[in-house]
């Protein structure tokens, strides 16, 4: 991978009391990359994600996100990232339009700009007829595409996705990944956290965490070759199972 680094993590350590949630993490993520962040619950994924999104400060180490220091400039980081999680992204009792207005307002966008972006978004999704529909009336697949587009409304440099396609039907999932590809090809970095290994297959590179450490970081193809596995799930099991049994 070449290009500009948008996330750079050096010797990141995060401790809660005597418990080390993140133990000396080092990695880079590049502009326009789809980066998969995998691990079981409790592997330290959520902790790292919080630090990267400016919600908590590292105990030690250097974390730069979108050109800002996560320790000192967390407010600037928040302005330059977007976040979407599958379950709770849009207010279900508000209309499509109200959600867009709200989101734009939160990010301090001018009314004019919100309106422009709204129109672009609705056109791109072919969503004009749904403009005044309440979110809970929309099928799951549409909601998800909308949530993703709304998270991009303020034109962030990086967007964090938490299990973006878990539980959706195969066609919608593919449409969604195509949207992600399109977004990435426009230079926006996609940071996917998931424990759904199928989603990892779609990423440019994946990073597997276990017990607070990074245990693998490469393209899905290289990982499969290295571990002689058919898919990322097998890679994950081969890496994580022996570790688990020593516990």
């Amino acid at each position: 991978m070449t290009g500009n680094r948008v996330i750079s993590v050096r010797n990141l350590v995060k401790k809660f009391g005597s418990f080390t949630a993140n133990d000396n993490l080092n990695f880079d993520v590049y502009e326009g990359e789809i980066f998969g962040f995998l691990g079981a619950n409790g592997a330290g994924k959520t902790t790292a994600l919080r630090i990267l999104s400016g919600l908590s400060a590292p105990t030690s180490g250097e974390v730069m996100v979108a050109g800002y220091d996560a320790t000192k400039e967390s407010e600037m980081i928040k302005r330059n990232i977007g976040y979407m999680c599958q379950k709770f992204s849009l207010y279900e009792d508000l209309t499509v339009r109200e959600n867009i207005m709200l989101y734009g307002g939160i990010y301090g966008m001018s009314r004019q700009l919100i309106r422009e972006q709204e129109q672009k978004l609705l056109n791109r999704l072919n969503f004009n007829e749904f403009r005044n529909r309440v979110i809970s009336d929309l099928p799951l697949g549409l909601r998800q595409k909308l949530a993703f587009s709304v998270a991009l409304l303020h034109q962030p440099k990086i967007i964090f996705l938490d299990e973006p396609t878990g539980g959706v039907d195969p066609i919608t999932r593919r449409q969604f990944w195509e949207m992600i590809y399109e977004t990435a090809s426009a230079g926006i970095t996609i940071f996917v956290t998931t424990h759904y290994m199928d989603e990892a297959e779609y990423c440019d590179r994946v990073c597997i965490m276990n017990e607070g450490r990074i245990v693998a970081l490469d393209t899905p193809e290289n990982l499969k070759k290295q571990y002689n596995a058919l898919n990322v799930e097998e890679v994950f099991i081969k890496i994580a199972r022996p570790l688990k049994e020593t516990v």
Partner: peptide, 22 residues
């Protein structure tokens, strides 16, 4: 991948094209 899938879809002989992992 993104260019590939958009291009392949436009190819006249293509029936279906879906991204599947890599």
């Amino acid at each position: 991948k993104y260019s590939l899938i958009t291009a392949v879809r436009k190819y006249p002989g293509t029936l279906t094209a879906y991204p599947f992992g890599e």
